[in-house]
Amino acid sequence: MTNIIRIQNLIYTYPNGFTALKGINIDIKKNDFVGIIGQNGAGKSTLLKNITGLLKPTSGDVIVGGLNTKHTSVARLSTKLGFVLQNPDRQLFADTVYNEVSFGPKNLKLTEQEINERVEYALGYTGLSSVRDKFPPALSAGERAKVVIASVIAMKPEIIILDEPTTGQDNRGCYQIMNIAKEFHKAGHTVIMVTHHMALVAEYACRTIVFCKGEVLLDGSTEEVFSQPEILKKSYILPPQITQMGSELSTVLNRKKTYLTVSDLSKDIFTRYQG
């Protein structure tokens, strides 16, 4: 499989002299679902900004879909990847949901019909068709986040990047957003998600990368990563509650396994109970 994103020896130093990324090497394959976790200030958001081209590497390279971000405009990169910011309100500006979602495609200089098709597709994808004429700020937080995701989907990117998509969301909003991401992934696209919500990482991400003080602390399958609680602690991370319970029950279950979801653990407890 091809690497859709290649990050090589990436160092990023802010103008005030603070080095937020200290030599990062990551290859991300097409159709991967990557969770990026780590303590506050570990460099996660700086990394995302380097991938989206909003920041350019101080040294090293970031190559997205074959394009080196150093020599590529953010506009060009935005056809490859869509970026959903932590706070949807910083990204919304149009008077209706429709206009918000059509803004990106309009800038691609597509025909009116193509624009229309893309917006309809994106609104349908995110379940927003019924609120197309509403004023975005009047929507609930969950819907506002979905408007941002719809705007991104309308650009038909190959990669979607979610920065703390569930912050400020209630349970319903959270799962609605994650389901959209899951569908996007199923359709063969790549998802990169930064979050502090470990249960979501465990449930959805195939691969998890842990950042700590500007460096990669762990990088592997989500199962491998959550099986190392002692190392995770260095970056203020705890595995999900169910994973912790699973490890405490490993002796009675007679299984050495990293449980990522409630149904995983439940299944093994029930099997052991039966017999």
Binding site: N171, C174, P240, Q241, M245, V262, S266, F270, Y273
Partner: peptide, 20 residues
């Protein structure tokens, strides 16, 4: 109210569904 319950509580309900 769409409340998320602790995973341990979900585990209880999941096991209950299975008959335990």
């Amino acid at each position: 109210a769409w409340i998320t319950i602790p995973q341990v509580s979900s585990l209880y309900l999941d096991l209950l569904d299975k008959g335990l």
